[in-house]
Every structure is written in C-alpha cells, then in structure tokens.
Design a binder for these strands. Structure first.
Length: 598
RNA sequence: GGGGUCGUGGUGCAGCUUGGUUAGCACACCGGCCUGUCAAGCCGGAGGUCGCGGGUUCGAGUCCCGUCGGCCCCGCCA
C-alpha cells in the first residue's frame, strides 16, 4: 500500500516516491521529494533517510562522489523539506536492511535542494512516539506525519472506498441529507445552531439522518446509504467523539434477515479488502435476554468464556441471609468463575470487591475452590449440596476463584459483566488477533426512565414492535420486544438498526407509550407522520459506527487514532482551540446574549 | 454531574511518603571527532524554579485549598 508508484500520480517535481524504489531500479537517476526523517553523520559519509506518505528511502552523501553536495548535506536537519536527485544503487554486500521495504537500495546524492526549513519538532516523528496525547493533539499536523497514523488514515480511505463500491454493487444510492435540521425530542442532547434569519430559532445538527432516510424510503429510493457525520452533545469516552461518522443505510421491502445479509456482506468485504482477513458468515445471533443472562451486557465480547451463571436456585434456602433474602425479594445470586484464580491475594480480591462497589454494587463474595470444599467466608452458611450445585453450575475445579454477587437481577448481571471484562483484561484472556462478530436481537422496545418517570425508546421511537407483541401494548409495555438488532464485535457495538414503523396507527401507539401526545407528535414529526399516510413501504436499516469499526480494523484501542482531527475527552480541539468565544457583532446578528457563565 | 490518575528543561520520566545542600536521568538539541550507518558511536556543551492561583511555614517541586488541562471510568450516549 505504501509502495505507491509515482507514475500513477504524475507530479513533475519528482520521478518516484520514497517508498517505491527496489533493486530493479539499480542505476536509475531519480528525483525524490519529502521530509528528512533522520541524518546520520559519519564525518565524511552522511546518511539521510527521506520520508513521504508512501515510505522511506536511504540517501548517501559521499564526498568522493560529489564534494559540494556532500557539504550541503551537513545543513540538513530533521523535518526539512527537500528535493533530492541521485542515482539508485544496490547497497554493498552486508549493508542491506531487511527491515526496510526499500532496504536493498540507496540513492547516491547528486543534487539536493532545501524547499523549506523546519524548527526542531516538539516530539520526534516516529512510530513509537512517547509524547503525550495532549502534545500530539496540539501539533496534530506533526502527529499525522507519523507513519503509524498515516497508515490509519489511509486505511480509513480504503475502507470508505470499499463501502462505496460494495453498496453500489448492491444497488444502494448514496444520497446526502441536511446537517441543518430541526431539533427533535428523545435521544442524545443536540448540538444547536442559531438561525440569523429567524432570530430565537435554532437548527440542530443530526444525531443521525434517521428521519431523512425514512423519508427517502417513502419517496421510493429503495436502497439508500451515506457515509455521514453525526453529532451528539454527550460526554466522551475512548470510543466516543462528539462528532463521529456512520455508514448509514436504509432499505425498503425488507425484513431482519435481508439487512443481516447485506451487513454481513459489507463486513466480509471490508475485512477481506482492508486487512485481508476472512470472516465466517452468517454471524451468530443471540437475544438481548440471553446476552444479559450469559454476559451481563448487550454487547458481549465472546472471544473468551467466563460466562455468568445464576445460582439462585441453590442458595434460596441458605442460612446466609444475604443470599436467601435477596432471592426471596425477587433478586438473584449469580457468579463467574475465574479459572485458576484461587491464587488471588487478599489485596486482589479486595480490589474486585471495590471495583463492584465503585459501580454502585454492594460488593462481591468469593470462594477459592479446593479439592473437597471451598475456602471462603461463606462456606459455613452453605450445605455440601449447595456447594456442589454451585460448583457444577460454574464448572468449578480445584484452583478456581468463584466470584458471586447478590442483588437486583439487572444490576447484578451488569456488574458481573463489567467484572468479567475487567478480569479478562487483567488476566490477558483476550486474543488480539481474533474477530468475533454476533447479532444481538429481540431488544425491549421500551425501557423505563426513572428520572423522567416514563418509558423511553430503547433504540429510537421509529422502531417497530414485534407483531406478536402488539397485544402487550396496554397491559405490559415493558415486555414488548422491538424489531431491533445490534451488530457486536469484540465487545463493541459497531452497528445498530431496526425495522421501522411504516403503519401510522402503530407509530402513533408507540408515541403514546412514550408519552408523546398527538399534538406534540404532529408538531415535532408531522412531516414523517404525513409521509406514512402517503404510501410508505415497509422498510428498515442499520448504521455502522465507522470510526469504531476502523479502530478495530486498525488494531487501535482509541477512536482518536483513526480520526484525523479528534477532540479531547472534554470536547476541545487543542490544535485550533475550538470551541471559542465569538464577537459581540456575531452574537448580535444572531439575537443571542451570553448570560454570565457559571 | 461524580470518581480515579497525571501535570517537573524541547520530550519522556525520577525527586514528593519523612518540607531545607548547585532539582537528577535518558532522549532530543548545539559544538567537535569519525567512510557503512539504519536506536550509529565517542568527547564536550547549553537548556528547567517544578500547569496556574492562594494558603501553611523561618523555608514548598515536596503539605493544604482552589483552578485549568490530558487520559480512564460511572452517570449520560434513542
């Protein structure tokens, strides 16, 4: 990839790129342009490594070849931009560098021209840079000059082209949707844009093009896609940026399986063409309930085991109050088995306990499994039958560490799920080379929001309920399942979507459950509701988190390393200092006034 | 909104627990030597007042409070 040939670029200033010269070019006179990567001065022999985005080449300045050119090389410093002409020759016996793509040859300098000088950079332009991320962000143009990041950015380009080619081949049309749209209720906090022409009114930047793509289906475009920026004004994480890119898709006349096949085909093509890895399709499917039960999360990492087991049945009548009363009160006792973890020290076990307490739980109870019994503070409260039951359920063997949590069902499972991930990281149970995608389906349509004291959509308010659950709408809305699905890869949600409501009556029923009355629905989503009245086809779609997917393809653990200009965890851009104050004049034009910042 | 952690020459770190000599090391940088390096080597040199503000103290990089910023996590993210 980095040995791109110059003939394809056709720039007069140079004849070749820094990455393309090989033994076959021996004897050729070439001109290269690029940045000085390093200079090694041997007194009367100077080596300069020249770099561009395509690779690096070694240049030799030899006074016995050309005294004057040799003298001018003494002036070269790191990151100077130069144009260099010289003769390619095979390196002498024993001097070949096998770690370098161009290591068989070197260029004997005949002429060098400094196109621009450079100050000493604040950090070296090398792959294993140890500069802080803060510094790298401030000088992002230098950071982006590092081969490692250039590789990621080029990988991103390749992936985007692959997406376009694949989806075009599947009959999708790429259609742009507005960035300036109206703010809608539900979901994430919007980024707002004040209107100058209509003072006091605001546009919102899209959290996703959701309504537009549904409108496109109603308009008959059949298959739509877009590689598009989305904006959410929420707090950041290693895998979350305030603006991020989605591969957004929507299709008419489809059911879940149709979308799975397209999404799987896209994944296969991406993994094959971008990193040369073949994925097995179809991907396995598990339900939301099963994911929660076995992994304590709706985005399980299935590259390792350590699954959660519910052991409530064994301790229901235990003398240990914490267990028996939890189960009696409708809660559960569940646990995971850290194979070979019996060697954990008191301090390590305390650490696990504190981890769960920090998550808002009550802590953990542990048992070190011995040949005939347990080494545990709760041993004395449990009968032999209880212990062997739990042992069997958790597949416990001597030398294992069992970690149990008692409490409300969802919280217990969730905390065990987080503990499971933490332990896998701590114990290095995760293979870096492996990719294990799976579909998670049968999500609840709604979840109860304690803060707002009402149901909110788990996916989004346009998601269709399952036909067979319509009867539950009035009696127990919390039990209604949605026709929604997530694609999970190695513990990351990399895509999510649903079959949408194309029938107006069902859409209105969902709005009513969300406590959005007819008037508000009409006001906020009138255009979409009207559209549903004029011949809306059944439709559904999915959106991939492009940055997250690239992070996994590139083997990075932060989304920031696959985004050219990312923001910090406090949503700042350290290079250009956004966000920034604006002039009085600008505010006045917008009819805005800043109230004292708190 | 909350928790954790970090902030010391250009860069990465040590020093902080037990306040007190010229704040130490490595890399980078500058000068010199060196014809086969590719983490080049050898010799020499310059460069910091410890994120910022306040406090305690005879005395603060070191203790306390606040604040700003980076990173990680919880909440949040349909």
């Amino acid at each position: 990839m980095r040995a791109f040939k110059l003939e394809k670029i056709a720039i007069k200033a140079r004849t070749h790129t820094c990455g393309e010269l090989r033994a076959e070019h021996d004897g050729l006179t070439v001109t290269l342009t690029g940045w000085v990567d390093s200079r090694r001065d041997h007194g009367s022999l100077i080596f300069v490594v020249l770099r561009d985005v395509y690779g690096i080449s070694q240049v030799v300045f030899d006074p016995s070849e050309d005294k004057q050119v040799y003298e001018s090389a003494r002036e070269l410093k790191n990151e100077y931009v130069i144009k260099l002409t010289g003769k390619v020759r095979r390196r002498p016996e024993g001097m070949v560098n096998p770690n370098m793509a161009t290591g068989e040859i070197e260029v004997v300098a005949q002429d060098v021209k400094i196109l621009n000088r450079a100050d000493v950079p604040p950090f070296p332009i090398v792959d294993d840079v140890d500069a802080s991320e803060e510094l790298r962000f401030r000088y992002r143009y230098l950071d982006l000059r590092r081969p490692e990041l250039q590789k990621n950015i080029v990988l991103r380009h390749r992936a985007a082209q692959t997406v376009r080619r694949y989806l075009d081949g599947q009959g999708f049309f790429e259609i742009e949707t507005p960035f300036l749209m109206r703010s809608t209720p539900e979901g994430a906090r919007d980024y707002l844009v004040p209107s100058r022409i209509h003072k006091g009114k605001f546009y919102a930047l899209p959290q996703s093009p959701q309504t537009y793509k549904q409108i496109l289906m109603i308009a008959g475009y059949d298959r739509y896609f877009q590689i598009v920026k989305c904006f959410r004004d929420e707090d950041l994480r290693a895998e979350r940026q305030p603006e991020f890119t989605q591969i957004d898709m929507e299709m008419s006349f489809v059911e879940e399986e149709d979308i799975f096949r397209i999404a799987e085909g896209l994944m296969r093509t991406l993994f094959d063409e971008v990193i040369g890895m073949s994925l097995q399709t179809p991907f396995p499917i598990i339900s939301f309930d099963e994911a929660m039960q076995r992994f304590g999360t709706d985005k399980p990492d299935v590259r390792f085991g350590m699954e959660i087991s519910d052991v409530s049945e064994f301790v229901r009548s235990s003398e240990f109050k914490v267990f028996s009363s939890t189960v009696a009160g409708g809660g559960i006792v569940a646990g995971i088995n850290l194979k070979g973890g019996a060697g954990y020290s008191r301090k390590q076990v305390d650490g696990l306990n504190q981890f769960v307490i920090d998550l808002g739980g009550k802590g953990v109870l542990t048992a070190k499994v011995k040949e005939d019994s347990w080494d545990s503070s709760i041993r004395k409260f449990l009968t032999d039958a209880m212990i062997s039951g739990i042992n069997e359920k958790l597949a416990a063997e001597a030398g294992d560490l069992l970690i149990l949590i008692a409490g409300e069902k969802m919280q217990t499972l969730t905390n065990l799920g987080k503990l499971r991930n933490k332990l896998a990281r701590d114990e290095n149970l995760i293979s870096k080379e492996e990719f294990k995608p799976l579909w998670v389906t049968e999500f609840p349509l709604l979840e109860f929001d304690e803060e707002e004291q009402r149901y909110v959509a788990m996916h989004h308010p346009f998601t269709s309920p399952r036909e067979e659950d319509l009867a539950l709408f009035d009696s127990s809305p919390g039990k209604v399942k949605a026709r929604a699905y997530d694609l999970v890869l190695n513990g990351y949600e990399i895509a999510g979507g649903s079959i949408r409501n194309h029938r107006l009556d069902i859409q209105m029923k969902v709005f009513n459950l969300l406590k959005i009355d007819d008037k508000e629905a009409r006001e906020k989503f009138g255009f979409l509701l009207d559209g549903l009245r004029f011949g809306a086809p059944p439709h559904g779609g999915i959106a991939f988190g492009f940055d997250r997917l690239l992070m996994l393809l590139a083997g990075e653990n932060s989304i920031r390393n696959v985004i050219a200009f990312p923001k910090t965890t406090s949503a700042l851009s350290l290079m250009d200092n956004a966000p920034a104050e604006v002039s009085e004049k600008q505010l006045k034009e917008l009819g805005l006034k800043i109230i004292a910042s708190l």
